[in-house]
Design a protein around this nucleic acid. Sequence first.
DNA 1: TTGAAAGCGCTAACAA
DNA 2: TTGTTAGCGCTTTCAA
Lengths: 341, 341
Amino acid sequence: MTHYKEVTIYDIAEVLKVSPATVSRGLKDHPGIRKDTKRKIVDTAKKMGYQHNTFASNLRRKKTNTIGVIVPRIESHFHSLVISGIEKVANTMGYNLIISQSQELFKNEVNSIATMFNSRIDGLLISLSNETKSTDHLEMLLRKKIPLIFFDRVIEHPDCTRVVIDNKKAGYDATQHLLKQGCKRIVHMDGPINRNVYADRLEGYKQALQEVNINFDSSLVINIELTDKAAAIAAQQILKMQPLPDGIFTANDISAVSCIRELKRAGIRIPDDIAVVGFNNEPIATVIEPNLTTIGYPGREMGEIAASTLINKLNKTNVTNLNTIVLRHELIIRQSSQKKK
Amino acid sequence: MTHYKEVTIYDIAEVLKVSPATVSRGLKDHPGIRKDTKRKIVDTAKKMGYQHNTFASNLRRKKTNTIGVIVPRIESHFHSLVISGIEKVANTMGYNLIISQSQELFKNEVNSIATMFNSRIDGLLISLSNETKSTDHLEMLLRKKIPLIFFDRVIEHPDCTRVVIDNKKAGYDATQHLLKQGCKRIVHMDGPINRNVYADRLEGYKQALQEVNINFDSSLVINIELTDKAAAIAAQQILKMQPLPDGIFTANDISAVSCIRELKRAGIRIPDDIAVVGFNNEPIATVIEPNLTTIGYPGREMGEIAASTLINKLNKTNVTNLNTIVLRHELIIRQSSQKKK
DNA sequence: TTGAAAGCGCTAACAA
DNA sequence: TTGTTAGCGCTTTCAA
């Protein structure tokens, strides 16, 4: 990086007539070091413009102080919030981040993990791609005792902590709300159900129906990619249903918005003919007309918690192995679901 | 990171009965090494599960292979796209990223730079906060010859490359489009004009007016923070104007959308009474009704170009010092600006 | 084309 | 409470 000579602990040691080891100790919170020695060292270091050399330290300690982060897409609003939270914690705690995106492809996820493994990350935070079905590609890390924390898109694994919301309850809340508005035939637009979040939301949907004795009708569940385009096509499918449904619960806001647009174009009144509830509380939810009722949950907080849990694990040897951390979610009621009585 | 013994070049050297130096050479594209020796080394390394130790290498070479990235907010749609582009390039070229956000505060920007300086980043990619007015806080890096590339929100500096779009031309295009729709009184809602992007867009606005001999009226320029809330307040201000303007050009989509919402609520017809053009082409632009005419420009590409330019600079000693790289933008015409003739 | 040897800057075991 | 010492794993100069 630079060709100018850097100040090292040896330089400080020389000036202060102590050993480099003492300087090294003085620069951290080492026990057994005299207070005034420590102060002298810190002062001199500052005066001489000393910069800690992380790489020498890493080499010696065999720690990289680097955390890997893999998300499906950095530019997804939810995930950029999570990353923002992770960044905040990591920066504060002196960890660096390697960030990578799977683009929802299992192949990319495998590649990223290999690269990160080679970069010797200390730990990994990951939200799985929609294609991911097993943890085989993660075993490489676990065999080396590199801790792993899943967030949002998770999978069951005995050795890993998961940071999630209660997707089943959230799906239940959304569906129950629609039922309370008088809906009887509710379509559920969902993602690939090998992904926990989508499977759980579906479960919640089923449970809410069951509680009011409505039989589950699998023809009302549409599993798609939850993109703009796929949802528009699904909307056309919905328009052909006989009889028309009176409610839709979609597993993300993008698909909800796309759907509303399409339905409105076909002359359907939202929420009077069909009430709609989304998921994620993205910015578009308050732009679409009518404003979208949705499930909100704290992305930034999820990132912060995942990161600090991981860092705690890295710093302590005796960690109580938390298996699952569940964050709160909330049903945010707006106009898209409120039928006039 | 791990307590298991790693395979080192010494282990390979021992197996192959050569020196560690030869192994080190064989593992890269060192000239002066026999082809079959090289192949033998590479094969054995792979067989033994050798992983290159970046930290030992960094320590020795005094390079960190780490690039710093500072953006105002990670969760901004545009900046998350840029980061996505930077990540892609950095990952491919074997660089790590340290990402930090200024939250539009100069104080945070200064802190992040200090932290990154201490982490000995090889180079920095930065999009400045709205508060930033000078490059004093960057001199620390430049004195150490750490290359610096500005993107999007930039500032003039002789030693630094800047990756931008032609904001003046974009502002001109937006305004000219409104004029062509028959607008005579165009409000320009802009950000803080100490930031290049906003100053330039204003310039373009002025130029377009001048070309059709409309006098610039400073009371039609509203400088705000360009948030949802600030734009809503500004919309109220616009509603009180006598006479009402017939066009609005805002410097981002968030404020355009907020504005449209507010104006519609007051009974203004968009675009017939007031035509609106935004900036950035965010997802909300196609959700608002009427859909928002806006300026689109390639965030992901900007990130990719900024990153590869920086990495080129790092790898070569004799770099032609590109001062400014200008990317294309385009006017995306939607309903919010098209007055019926 | 290859090898010997030194050292990047730090930390930690052990000794004093 | 402090010092001595021996590396962490790699690269690179110099010599062969």
